[in-house]
């Protein structure tokens, strides 16, 4: 029976659950680079000939990731023919388990990301590359293209690694000649980073109340209500 149904349009429940768990394992293992996972690769490496069941099986796999692993699979519409996914952890879970220990490399990258994402956030969403580099130089994190003892090659992280991981977007300013670039938040930052925590950090450093930053505080509230709305939609 099983072999017959694999040729037909319907999958047996055994085959289906095998494919779902394969996809879950594949996504979990691919996630460690933090690069987005392409639909194309999932079909090529896991589903193979069962490509036409993609939508159904992916929905089930996302369900498993949420219910069992507590992670959210976020779809990114890169372009119409290239779907990509990133994994985002459960906020509530991380708040409860605050002593989760990260490797030193990850710690360093998170410090760096917090600094530069908060700068972008506070500056209204865009920062020019000259501002970014002078900011990091002032903090003593970046010194030309010299490798930092704690962070490594900071500029390469910013313009290559973080871009690939979708924490930041590093794009050319249109009609700039010679080309100038600016930094914005990437898709992963939007999914993974808490604006409230960033604003809390900035306020801590400034020694003031987060609500004093009227524009930014407004944005925090807006982002949180949007997230809440989405969660309700997903729940239904």
């Amino acid at each position: 029976m099983a072999s017959q149904s694999s040729q037909g349009s319907k999958l047996s429940s055994q085959e289906q659950s095998a494919l779902i768990s394969d996809i879950v394992l594949y996504i979990l293992s691919q996630d460690h680079t933090k690069y987005p996972i392409k639909r194309q690769d999932i079909v090529k490496n896991v589903l193979k000939t069962h490509g036409r069941h993609y939508k159904h099986i992916m929905n089930e796999a996302a369900h498993v990731l949420t219910e069992i692993f507590g992670m959210k699979l976020v779809e990114i519409e890169h372009s119409s023919n290239m779907k990509q996914y990133i994994l985002v952890n459960n906020e509530q879970f991380l708040r409860d388990v605050s002593d989760l220990k990260w490797p030193e490399e990850v710690e360093a990258q998170q410090v760096l990301l917090m600094l530069l994402l908060s700068l972008i956030f506070m500056s209204g969403g865009v920062v020019k590359e000259e501002v970014m580099s002078s900011f990091l130089t002032r903090l003593g994190i970046m010194n030309g293209r010299k490798s930092h003892e704690y962070f490594g090659d900071v500029w390469k992280l910013l313009t290559v690694e973080f871009v690939r991981q979708m924490y930041v977007e590093y794009v050319r300013i249109p009609e700039s000649n010679p080309p100038k670039y600016e930094f914005r938040w990437g898709h992963r930052a939007k999914g993974e980073v808490s604006r409230r925590e960033l604003l809390n950090f900035v306020s801590l450093v400034y020694g003031c109340d987060p609500k004093n930053w009227v524009t930014q505080y407004q944005e925090v509230l807006q982002a949180e209500s949007e997230k809440e709305k989405k969660r309700e939609e997903d729940g239904k």
Partner: peptide
Amino acid sequence: IAAKCFCRT
């Protein structure tokens, strides 16, 4: 402090 800002898997 930085770790609190991220929901990293």
